[in-house]
Design a protein around this nucleic acid. Structure first.
Length: 303
DNA sequence: GAGGCGTGGGG
DNA sequence: TCCCCAAGCCT
């Protein structure tokens, strides 16, 4: 089924044009010089950055991204490597399934697209690990296509500046894309700068906990500020389970052993590192394809 | 639509 | 210390 774009509303009212224009102008001088924003980076390099940036902060991504691009400069380079290399190079970025998905996506790009990252939204969305955000981010930032790009930062900026509320509430791809479409400048280059600028504003100024409104380029147009910063009264996000003692932690500990050992790791060895969570952790890792049971213990896939 | 998935920085 | 939050995606 084709990916549906929201109705082709463009920011035509004076208020929306002024808001998006202010963000575009601010981004032109305030953008951080992130390496994947350089003019000469390939669509593949942008794609790798977007995978790594899923739920992960810029500062932690940057060194890993540099290594990956140097080591695997094209999709074919990564596809030719064993998945275990990808998982090892992912190191401790978190959510290691992403390393597997990225490796799979590289293979799919080679098989279906001749080794070239597609620019089409549907083709991108069909790749492993690419959802609504990542597909539009690649189309917009790697190819300059005019699509609304909505991440958690953008959602917060719109909620505050337009909605007049402190938090965005539960995400809804349909509604979020519609809201962004209503603000998106008609011009391709400006649309791209607005997509990136709204994210940047949310990541560096309009942050979740202590927004720096004194430095905000749209403070005088912000509905939340105008309303006197009312506290959020919508549904609270479910509290994240504590990490210490969790299955997530156990999976991480197991995977750390498998990455370090270039040989099968016996169950007894793992039991020295992980407590009674070990069985569940291994079961989950095997189900996800991050661990493989072999003679003598467990290894990373394709190693 | 809810739940699960890593790891680390910052208040 | 503890808790919140983070360029989401998959099942």
């Amino acid at each position: 089924m084709p990916t549906r774009e929201p109705a082709a509303e463009t920011g035509t009212t004076d208020a929306t044009a002024a808001l998006s224009g202010a963000i575009v102008d601010w981004f032109a001088h305030a953008a951080r010089p992130l390496p994947w924003r350089a003019a000469d980076v390939s669509p593949w390099a942008v794609l790798v950055s977007e995978f790594m940036l899923q739920q992960t902060q810029v500062a932690r991504v940057q060194p890993r991204w540099e290594e990956w691009i140097r080591r695997w400069p094209t999709p074919a380079d990564l596809a030719a490597a064993p998945a275990s290399d990808a998982v090892r190079a992912w190191d401790r970025l978190g959510y290691p399934r992403r390393a597997l998905w990225l490796h799979r996506a590289a293979t799919e790009i080679v098989e279906r697209h001749g080794g070239e990252v597609p620019c089409d939204l549907d083709a991108l969305s069909a790749l492993q690990g690419i959802g609504p955000y990542t597909a539009r981010a690649i189309a917009a930032f790697a190819f300059g296509e005019r699509h609304p790009v909505v991440d958690t930062n953008t959602r917060r900026v719109i909620a505050r500046a337009v909605g007049g509320v402190a938090e965005a509430g539960p995400p809804s791809t349909r509604r979020d894309l519609d809201a962004m479409s209503a603000l998106l400048p008609p011009d391709r280059a400006r649309a791209r700068a607005f997509n990136a600028g709204a994210m940047e504003l949310g990541a560096t100024v309009c942050v979740a906990r202590a927004p720096r409104c004194d430095d905000c380029p749209i403070a005088d147009r912000c509905a939340w500020r105008a309303a006197g910063y009312p506290a959020y009264d919508g549904p609270r996000r479910a509290r994240q389970a504590r990490f210490a003692g969790s299955d997530r932690e156990a999976r991480g500990l197991v995977l750390r052993e498998l990455r370090a050992a270039h040989r099968p790791v016996a169950l007894e060895e793992l039991a020295r590192v992980v407590d009674d969570r070990l069985d569940r952790a291994l079961e989950g890792l095997v189900a996800d394809g991050l661990a493989v049971r072999v003679d003598g213990g467990y290894v990373l896939p394709d190693s």
